[in-house]
Design a protein around this nucleic acid. Structure first.
Lengths: 358, 358
DNA sequence: CTGTTAGCGCTTTCAC
DNA sequence: GTGAAAGCGCTAACAG
């Protein structure tokens, strides 16, 4: 037994499929009210549900928004996903999910898959990587995206524009001032801090991480401080943990020079990992080291000590990326290729210098 | 400019569309290697990407898995989503996401939308509610699901079977022994605890919450303890916070009878909210109250004090729900309608009675 | 092994 | 305002 079709409904209502289509799904022409009612009734008794695939084929649009993230369970991405989902709902669309673990090759594949499904737009979140080894895949990713745009697709990018991508009018990027905010954070932290700064960042070439590191260094420099050492690790909790272990060893060996290290982790999740590592070594925050993160992940706000960080409107970022890349905005020439959001430095106890025992 | 089609590829390669289809997309019959190469080349130069909608229409399958959650940003759901996504990838499918905030009406709508898209299977996570006000929508949800099954769809359910749903062979439920585990937790906690037990639960009728509460009460009873008071709140962090405030007031008023309350929050996120509330009132865990949660959310594992909880294999649950409801398993009669997972009680410092000052 | 012929279910000119 | 007809791009018998 298979789902009932439009023509079955039409037959039951004693009208043509065309008419049935007109009443059941929005159309310019509006059939007579009496006819319409008859059709609706027929549809109802048959439990008719339009076949979106057939509609998509006929209309060359799918009502789908493709979302590409590294890992949907990462709170950074799931917050963005929530925003994308909200935007989709507003537009009566659905979101298709792809996770890539950040590898450009997988991202390319995801774009191709979305293109195959004729997604109306694609939102790509998560930093692209510019590591040498990824060079080719990155080029291919850009090519795939350009091709998608050429065929009429819109893409929303979170963070920075895709390297190498260049289709006019196809991309909408939501600029996140990672660098500026990191600089600001550095400046604010340097005001009340004595010890050496250390940065825990993601692998080199990971754009978001690089931006934040660069910004932080600039901020230090602006404050007249020397450049901070950078420890590279994975851009997740585990990476933070590993880096934290290294630092713990050095702190215990007295390498912090009599003062506390002030650690900047390039994202909150890494920061939490680092804190966990320090703790596992018997160290305390902020007693033995100061630490700050980036993102202001909601689930982590109840963490103790409260984490100094840069608050980003993640959900809004997702919304903007999805809305900005909406096809609905074509024609209107005010549709800019960029939207921007802003974040705020939030100083909390994890970087308090004059504190009660942690 | 629109994407190129199969027939264009076929023409370029000098073969029929059928042949082109056979080489480009898996088929039983394998064309001659030489022909195949020619077709592949043509496809490549044209940048051909198959139209999945058209394929879906023709094959009456979409390669889509629909996933229904309350909130994708809730770590409980995003962990499950990760599992579903993993299963989808294994099967070469994509996941369609719908969020419903737990309202049965929205869930029904999501099922209909998935049915319209001809999703091969639907995974529905998140507790259904049996609140009186939701009765009708619940019936409709069950009806919608049944209809979906009748049309050949498979549905995977996390937790408990859908109330009122009854299509033979359509449902696969991943049983989560919420009640048993909660009972076990209660028993283990009661071993070393003096004070009164208090339960912070979700709204009445929220199945998962109800199961856990019931189990916990049973465990207490098995341990020879009186039934615990239940505070009802929303099933999220805010709900936990509000309940926590109430409890804080009572603790400060000395209502805990000289001993510490032992609080059981029906999920980790609520527990964290409650802890935050207690802290905001100057109370400490476990010094002034003990607290346990449920789920063992990954992001919360670095929380201090470490939260006693019941660890659930969330990702695996998602995987099983998606795999179990896979269409691939038809024919094989060993495909049971249930899979089950087990969890473990994890005692951590948040319920330690003889502890250093918290 | 390859090509031809019908559709899959819906939308949409185009006549009436 | 309504119906007839021609696809949307692909797959699946069925012949050759």
């Amino acid at each position: 037994m298979t789902a009932s079709t439009l023509s079955e409904v039409a037959k039951l209502a004693g009208v043509s499929p065309a008419t049935a289509s007109r009443v059941l799904n929005g159309s310019a022409r509006t059939p007579a009210p009496e006819i319409a009612e008859r059709v609706r009734q027929a549809a109802d008794t048959l439990g008719y549900i339009a076949n979106a695939q057939a509609q998509g084929l006929a209309k060359a649009r799918s009502g789908l928004i493709g979302l590409i993230v590294h890992d949907i369970a990462d709170p950074y991405f799931s917050a963005i996903a929530r925003g994308v989902q909200a935007a989709a709902r507003e537009q009566g669309k659905m979101v298709l999910l792809a996770t890539t673990e950040g590898t450009p090759a997988d991202e390319r594949a995801a774009v191709a898959a979305f293109a195959a499904r004729r997604a109306d737009s694609i939102v790509i979140a998560g930093s692209r990587s510019t590591q040498p080894g990824d060079k080719d895949s990155n080029t291919e990713l850009a090519a795939e995206l350009d091709r998608y745009c050429r065929n009429g697709g819109k893409v929303g990018v979170v963070g920075h524009s895709i390297v190498g991508a260049s289709h006019p009018d196809g991309y909408h990027v939501v600029d996140v001032p990672n660098e500026e905010l990191a600089a600001k954070l550095a400046v604010e932290l340097s005001a009340g801090t004595q010890g050496d700064f250390v940065i825990i960042g993601g692998p080199e070439g990971r754009l978001t991480s690089d931006d934040r590191i660069r910004g932080f260094q600039r901020g230090l420099s602006d404050a007249g401080l020397p450049e901070a050492e950078v420890i590279r690790s994975r851009f997740n909790r585990e990476g933070g943990y590993e880096a934290g272990l290294q630092l713990a060893a050095r702190i215990k060996a007295g390498q912090s020079g009599g003062t506390r290290f002030c650690i900047f982790a390039a994202n909150d999740v890494m920061a939490i990992g680092a804190v966990a590592a320090l703790r596992s070594e018997g160290l305390r925050i902020p007693r033995d080291a100061l630490i700050a993160g980036f993102d202001d992940i909601e689930t982590l706000r109840d963490f103790r000590p409260p984490l100094t960080t840069v608050s980003l409107p993640l959900e809004e970022i997702g919304r903007l990326a999805a809305l900005g890349s909406s096809n609905d905005r074509d024609g209107s020439e005010d549709a800019s290729a960029h939207s921007s959001v802003t974040g705020t430095v939030v100083l909390r106890r994890s970087t308090e210098t004059a504190s009660a025992p942690g």
